[in-house]
């Protein structure tokens, strides 16, 4: 128990006017999700301290904001958020900081016409699933960070160019990998519809068993329909997600098996949370590489992996 964190002490300190002097350099940038914080950290290098509130393995649906997180947000020189209601739990804090011009919602910098609509003023927030969209969103974030440390702008631009070149290469790899899947079986079957941007970018048909909310539940008619689809199209694999129970997907496998068609689990895909921190799958490139390669291989396509690290980790 760290007593120094107790608000009473903070109050006493405040009464005596003991404000901590802020160090001049480097600026602190807090990203809400690791899909933003991880690439930004690579690009910023020593120019800024980039942290993510939600670690690589944390699911935004389960996230509980704590007082410590609020202190980090308050102390940040810049907050980079995704927006489009992804950070519902932090909404009020972000809105308050946004009034001070300290928050940039990077997914909201992308034109509505390039996003998939959810409601009249929100779009599907899972924008990182399409690396070309995410590169554009990150570009705006990089520019804002660079503005905080003008001396570093050139170095950051160089690192950003290199990183985005890698993302473009990943995009080309994903395009080729998904296109190598036979047209009949080019179908991504998951528990819920979280891969809309991925599906649109790479032309793979999406079939989610249930709605996207945590409370939503599947119906038997939908299960039977999907079993028939798997059998008729001879789809060899279905996929589980790290943040959703695998029961529905396993029921599909059993149903198809009863109809004489063997389906297997093609892999565990990362939807909202990323892989373990410090591992390749805990990076945005590694996460997308893992998803793409697992899907392509399991559905009968050709995919060697975008990076050799995929096989090592």
């Amino acid at each position: 128990m760290r007593l120094g964190r107790a608000p009473w002490l903070a109050m006493i300190l405040a009464v005596f006017g003991a404000f901590s002097a802020r160090a001049a350099v480097p600026p602190t940038v807090v990203a809400t999700i690791a899909q933003i914080g991880q690439p930004l950290g690579v690009i910023a290098g020593d120019c800024a301290r980039v942290e993510s509130l939600l670690g690589e393995g944390v699911d935004p649906h389960l996230y509980q904001p704590t007082r410590a997180d609020m202190k980090r947000l308050l102390a940040a020189d810049l907050v980079l958020a995704n927006g489009h209601n992804l950070e519902a739990g932090l909404h009020r804090a972000l809105a308050a900081l946004a009034e001070r011009g300290k928050v940039l919602y990077i997914a909201e910098t992308i034109g509505q016409e390039r996003l998939l609509p959810w409601s009249d003023h929100h779009s599907d927030p899972h924008v990182w699933m399409d690396p070309t969209l995410w590169r554009d969103a990150l570009t705006v974030g990089v520019a804002r960070v660079a503005a905080l440390v003008p001396a570093c702008a050139q170095a950051m631009t160089a690192r950003a160019m290199a990183f985005f070149a890698e993302m473009d290469a990943l995009d080309a790899y994903a395009k080729a990998a998904i296109a190598s899947i036979p047209a009949d079986t080019r179908m991504l079957v998951t528990a819920h519809d979280a891969f809309a941007y991925f599906g649109r970018r790479y032309g793979i048909e999406l079939q989610g068993v249930q709605g996207i909310s945590t409370e939503s539940e599947a119906g038997l008619a939908r299960i039977e329909e999907m079993v028939r689809l798997l059998v008729d199209r001879k789809v060899p694999a279905v996929f589980v997600e790290t943040s959703v129970s695998d029961r529905l997907v396993r029921a599909l496998i059993e149903g198809a098996g009863a109809a004489g068609h063997t389906v297997r689990i093609g892999g565990t895909l990362y939807s909202d949370a990323m892989g373990a921190p410090g591992s390749y799958r805990g990076t945005i490139i590694g996460m997308l590489d893992h998803n793409t390669t697992s899907i392509a291989r399991a559905l009968g396509g050709q995919a060697t992996g975008f990076s050799p690290q995929l096989a090592k980790d």
Partner: peptide, 14 residues
Amino acid sequence: LETEAARKVDLDLN
């Protein structure tokens, strides 16, 4: 929640 319009939107209570 399973109606077409609500299905693709994250409408859980949290």
